[in-house]
Design a protein around this nucleic acid. Sequence first.
DNA 1: GTAGGTTACTAATGCGCTTAAGTAGTGAGC
DNA 2: GCTCACTACTTAAGCGCATTAGTAACCTAC
Lengths: 325, 325
Amino acid sequence: MTRPAKRTTIADVARAAGVSPATVSFVLNDTPGQSIPEETRSRVLEAVRRLDYRPRGSARSLAAGRSDVVLLSIPHLSIGPGITRFVEQFAASLADAGLTLVTHLAGAPGRPLPDVCAAVDASVVAGLDPFDEDTARGLRRAGADVVFTTDVEARPTLRGMGRLQAEHLIALGHRRLGYAMPEHPLLRKIADERLLGVADACAQAGIDPPLALDTKLDLTAMARAARRWRRESVTAVCAYNDEVAIALLAGMRHARMTAPGDLAVMGADDIPLARLTDPPLSTVAFDLEKVGRSLAEAVVATLSGGKPRVSPASLSPHVIHRAST
Amino acid sequence: MTRPAKRTTIADVARAAGVSPATVSFVLNDTPGQSIPEETRSRVLEAVRRLDYRPRGSARSLAAGRSDVVLLSIPHLSIGPGITRFVEQFAASLADAGLTLVTHLAGAPGRPLPDVCAAVDASVVAGLDPFDEDTARGLRRAGADVVFTTDVEARPTLRGMGRLQAEHLIALGHRRLGYAMPEHPLLRKIADERLLGVADACAQAGIDPPLALDTKLDLTAMARAARRWRRESVTAVCAYNDEVAIALLAGMRHARMTAPGDLAVMGADDIPLARLTDPPLSTVAFDLEKVGRSLAEAVVATLSGGKPRVSPASLSPHVIHRAST
DNA sequence: GTAGGTTACTAATGCGCTTAAGTAGTGAGC
DNA sequence: GCTCACTACTTAAGCGCATTAGTAACCTAC
């Protein structure tokens, strides 16, 4: 691989401003304990602007012992409109703290997460869900701290979404619930957690546990599942997410069944199309922007030597009641 | 910010294997021109395994003059199932070439792309669409090469998708087309390109240019747009993407209009739910995995000093004819 | 037995920054 | 006039690697 053309370095800026590289570093980093006269500071910043200079992250990381990079691992199957709101807020909050966010879409063939972490020299790796022990150990070995949206008290969120779905349907009088599992094996971990929440609510209401069926984003498969639930006297189904719920509505239409008459349908995640289905889909949403901000706070706390924590109360999951229930 | 706990370095591995750091580097990088006896190589690799060692990307980049990191900039509004297939294939192809992919969701508040590039010290920045001149210059200043999916001959793809949408409808006999623009201003650049393709096909067929209307993912707004098209004798609408098309189908239902009877509807991108709408949505798809592989080839070529190029013929956009047309 | 080439390594340097320690000049207090 | 503290910087070292140049041992040909 060819070396790149010579790029502007802090030495170039120092020469242009008539100071030493250390002075440039003090100005750019607003280093505490240094007294830099305003005139010198202006001269340095003008040279930075004129030379269009940006410090090289690798050199900074090596010299300082830690980078400003936060790596977010997203299971590629979680990609959707909700995720983008979360990432936006997370990135903005990190930028406020002088940190840079990049993401890694996990689960695909490609480099394992610890290798990616070492390659970009991330100081923190954030995940939506806990990593397996080998991955977590590899990340720490690569010099990174690890934080999750489900750290500390936040774990109940996934389960809490399932619980909210079920409580809503039970409050409407349903006594026999179903659960629509996602097709892809990698989503099952999340789905199993949400299903536990549905089971919790059923147990607390003194009714049978939910009848969980595997589903696919396919008309005939969904029609078959809908008929199976009806045959088993299930009157309402919680779907793993909105996409699965929308596919179920389509399958029911195909099977000449209506929602909520024949079967009430409850989604999760509140994607934009949920409002536009026929009937419009009831769902559970939570404040993904708030998750982004909370996770950024956890990252900053981790880097400052504190204990990462995300409070579930702040995630404020809530039901959006539409016509499908 | 606290310094991380001491991490394993190449010096540690060298000590454990009883060789010098240079020898460890030669083994790990399979450096040409060095003869390392098999016995020594095995000893080094065993020490790497036992110490769970990964080279630090920052140190490698500083020493070698260029990193192994490729940064992909994705407009956050492009996120969807199609994008994940593309990123998967792109990442896998880069990994085969020893490169590491991370992504930056652009358009959100947060750091500008050149700053992110400098922070992770990326050697190549890839984009779905060309960056503006300031951004491109900043990226080069930060030491990165820049490649796009629309580089060289690939630019016609967006326009080609529009053309395919229109040609399909014209072939079915439609003589007055509409175009459903997306709501978000950041998507207009892409939409304008696709609209040009629709206009191209109309001009070539000798019919009026398409009637483009702004739309929103909102039932009443879509119903109003549908009525407006009908009032203007439009018989078929090309939507900016599948999500907009699905929203239009919902709006038409709300306005007591049917597809394709009252208005034929054509989407783009072929998301999974497109098969499940009522009626199932006709759309245009292309091989996103192939885009990922082609872009990876362009990156490798760029790093080897070659000229980046992506051939549009390889993207094989094609129509999927369903019941909405 | 010696010279030259090859093998199997190692020592040393520097990449671009941060940071600790050092230095020259200045001003106030005695 | 001298001493001490402070200001406004600068110098130098080192972070963890890749890479270049160098070295000692070995082998073959004459």
